[in-house]
Structures are given as structure tokens and as C-alpha cells.
Write a protein that binds this DNA or RNA. Structure first.
Lengths: 254, 254
DNA sequence: GAATGTCGTTCGAAATACCGAACACTCCGG
DNA sequence: CCGGAGTGTTCGGTATTTCGAACGACATTC
């Protein structure tokens, strides 16, 4: 796939650092990433010039993400039917079950949430949306991984390397992951109990686009206190309907 | 401000190209930006590797914005109190007047919308948000420009160079802009009639943060058919209240 | 107030990323 | 079936960028 451009890689590393820390100074970036001091100066200077970073008002040597970043993100969201339609359908499903609903896509071995609806806060737009989580710890992630070919899975989760965990119950080994995915493929629904969060369970269903490819997954998250075998079945049904509805809006014909 | 890093500049140029065109191939990017063919290959390869671009499914040589872009934008939105609170207050104001409400910030000589509420479509989240318009053509833009120091204005709009227009009524010359801004400073409210759009008028008020700096502006847009001297006064009052409410949420004390 | 450490900024030699040339492949029209 | 245009891919010399060293500004400590 050609060679990669180191300067761009570094610039993106810097930008992505601001996904974890709100404000950073140049020495801090230097310490975190290990790039030469002067190079960090030049890179940050360039990013500021293009307003992907901005000095925080009153402290000209500390930086934050700038509107440039927002502009790009919004352009993506506007293009993607998925974010528009996903938001609408998520809100419907959230209203029907009174629980939190997410829509997410796969990026490498992590999931990125692109839409969210919470029954009690109907317009909770920019909260967790955009956040990244390890795919193998979430129901949406498992659903999306189940749709991949085996050789792609081997690339992402090579046998032998064990996986980062979010809770005690998170899937720990590639072998475990594979047997789990097999079961999910059989059922067409992914379920997860306290694997991404101590107190939350989750059901997810696959979303397909015009071409029939699985491009996203939709999930319902429930605090364990409201979770039961019976409820799980109802919610699975509901999220499956939601996923079909969203697929249809994306041009998929059943 | 140090030197800038050409490779990063080019990478950003490429990304921003996707703000105008939804899908692009490498030859198209080459034609648009004039960078050497092989360089475009390397840059795009790098951006794809980091998932700021993705090949469109089925057409491995055409590209779209990827989730990486979205991730960054969402991180910005999440950090900025302005986007969160702005969305909430905009919705309130929209409900009160039954018109479209925007919140925008200044980036160079353009404005970027960071929140929007439309009375008829309460959750219209990712529509025009993130879009960029020339500041001197919009009410929000004029309001924000009015808050700048004169020397900054001289940099952005040097005397003699005339300005791009969106409609026949758009401000055309720097001189005109300056007299207009003086009037806006006097009143504390910006008004605009068919200067950004043939059929729309607009009132805007300034939003300040904790430190008292003007960081954004809020506007109400009205189709000219519903516009009148009397209504303008009412809406100006309303948007001023909204702006104060938002300022307060950002920690500004009156 | 001298001494020490941190950090922003400048500058030029050394390293390396960039880009042109050449090749390979696909798609068309003849 | 052939030829040409358009595009993806490879590779190496050289123009460019990178990064260390040096300096100055500022803060902090003794």
C-alpha cells in the first residue's frame, strides 16, 4: 500500500492525543510521544495555522482541539446516511424501550459510536458519540466482528496474543472470541453481560446497507438491575426490528 | 511562529477537499490540488492507514472521509461546553420563536456553525452544523467580527481588497464592513437582511465565556416572508436573552 | 542575586522523504 | 487482437525537511 508519510503520522498522533487530554503544552506532547522537541514545535505550529489546534485563551503555550477538527468530523457525519438515519431510528427504539440505544461502526479492532439516543435525555447528541471502545468487549463490536471473514479476524486478533479487558468478564483470549463469534453468527444477535461495564448488559443486531454488507450495528444497553432472561428476549426482538428499519432506510431490501 | 510542515499542510488540504466533494479518486485529487501524483498516493495511503479516509466499498480506488475524521470532530464537540450547552439553549430559543436558531464561532474570516435547532425538526443534529460561511455575509459573523480589535480586522480584511459575496446585498468592501461593524458595536446586536441568502433575514447576539471574552454568537434566521420591523425587534430581544443564557451556562457572570 | 532548570526560538548540517522516470496493468476503441 | 490512454506501483537521486546544538528568556531555588 505504498509508503507512509512520517510527518503526517506524527501530526495525527498529536491530534489524537487530544482525544485523551483536553489541554496540552508542547513539552507535554514531547514527553508523551517522544518526538524531538523542535519537530513538535513545527508540527503544532502547522496544526495551529490550520486551526486544528488553538492556543487556549490567555495561555498562548497550551493548546486545545480547534474548529478545524470539528469541521472535518461534521463533514463526515453529514455525508454518512448512517449518522443521520441512525440518530432517528435510535430515538424511536429508545422511546419504545426506555433504555439507551447506540449505533456504531467498526474501525480496525475498535468500535466508534456514531449515534446515540437516551430515553430520558432525548437530545443528548454529542456525548459518547465519537468515542472508541475495544470491539471484543461490546455487543455492537462482537456483532460487527461476527460479520468479518476469518482471515481478517486472524489479522486483528492473532492467536496467542491475549486481549485488553474492560471488566473481569471481558473476553480474554482469541480462542474464546472465536467460539463466541460462532454462536453469534448462528443467532444473528449479540448479547453481552457486564463485559464492557460492570453494571450494564447489552443486545445488538446488525445493520446492512444497499449492497447487503454489514456496515454498522445497533444496540440497547440496560443496567443489570433491569435485566432478566425475559427482558433480554424482548429487547433482542426490538433491536433486531430497529436494525432492520435502519437497514431499510439505507437502501437494503430484505 | 516557526516553520510549517509541508507534508501535513498537504494532508490537510486533501482532507478538506472532501468537505466539498463526497468521493474522490487519486487522479482527481492530483488534478484539484496539483500535488505530484506519487505524493498524493503516499499521502492518501497514510490517511487511509489511519482511517481518516476509507476506500468506498466495491471501488477500492475511490475514497471518502473515514471515521477517524468523525472521531476527532466528536472529541472537539465533547470538550467544548459551547457545543453541548449551545445545543440545549438553541433548542429552547427555537421552541420559543418557532424559527431556526444557530450558534457559531469565528475561524479566521469565516464562521463555523457548532449547534443548530429547528423548531419543526427538533433533533436535526448533524445537518448544517460544521459548515463554514464567510463571516462578513452572516449576522453571527458580523457580531463576532465586531468583537475583534481593529488591527486584527486589518489583517483579515485589508483595505482595498473587496470581499466575496453570497448575494447581491452582501457587504462588498472593507470600508462598508467597518461602518457596519461600528453600528453593530453600538447596538450590541447584529441584523442582516438577505445578505447570506436571498430569502432569509437574521438577528444575532454575542456569547461570552467565563473570562468575558466573546467566543461565539447566537442567531435566529427568518424567511423574509415572516420578517417585519416589529418582529425583528421581538426576535432581537429573544436572541439576546438566549445569548445571555448561554453565556451564563459557560460561566459568564453578568 | 547568582545559579539552575525549563522552555521557546533560531539555524545549518545530515538524513530522509519527495518526486520523476520507468514499468505494469487495465480498459477502450478500432 | 492490437495500440494508446489512464492509472497503480516501484525505486533511487536529490532537494527538502528534520533535529541537535546553541542561545536567550523566564521562573524557581538557595
Amino acid at each position: 500500500m505504498g509508503r507512509s508519510v512520517p510527518a503526517v503520522m506524527r501530526a495525527l498522533d498529536i491530534l489524537e492525543l487530544f482525544g485523551t487530554k483536553e489541554e496540552l503544552s508542547i513539552p507535554e506532547i514531547h514527553a508523551q510521544l517522544g518526538f524531538p522537541r523542535t519537530s513538535v514545535h513545527e508540527l503544532v505550529g502547522t496544526l495551529v495555522e490550520r486551526s486544528y489546534l488553538t492556543p487556549v485563551p490567555g495561555q498562548p503555550h497550551r493548546f486545545r482541539l480547534g474548529v478545524g477538527a470539528f469541521h472535518l468530523g461534521a463533514a463526515y457525519a453529514e455525508r454518512m446516511d448512517l449518522t443521520r438515519e441512525g440518530q432517528t431510528v435510535a430515538a424511536e427504539v429508545a422511546a419504545a424501550c426506555d433504555e439507551t440505544v447506540h449505533v456504531a461502526v467498526l474501525d480496525g479492532s475498535s468500535v466508534v459510536y456514531v449515534a446515540k439516543a437516551d430515553s430520558t435525555h432525548p437530545v443528548r447528541m454529542v456525548s459518547a458519540v465519537g468515542r472508541r471502545l475495544p470491539a471484543h468487549c461490546t455487543a455492537v463490536g462482537l456483532m460487527l466482528l461476527a460479520a468479518l471473514e476469518d482471515n481478517r479476524l486472524d489479522e486483528l486478533f492473532p492467536i496467542g496474543r491475549n486481549l485488553p479487558a474492560l471488566t473481569e468478564r471481558s473476553i480474554a483470549s482469541p480462542e474464546q472470541l472465536r467460539t463466541r463469534l460462532a454462536r453469534i453468527r448462528g443467532r444473528g444477535i449479540a448479547e453481552e453481560f457486564c463485559e464492557s461495564n460492570e453494571a450494564v448488559a447489552c443486545v445488538a443486531a446488525p445493520v446492512a446497507d444497499r449492497s447487503g454488507r454489514i456496515v454498522a450495528a445497533m444496540s440497547i444497553s440496560v443496567p443489570t438491575m433491569r435485566w432478566s432472561r425475559k427482558r433480554a428476549g424482548e429487547l433482542a426482538e426490538l433491536v433486531a426490528q430497529g436494525a432492520v428499519s435502519l437497514s431499510t432506510r439505507l437502501g437494503h431490501r430484505g
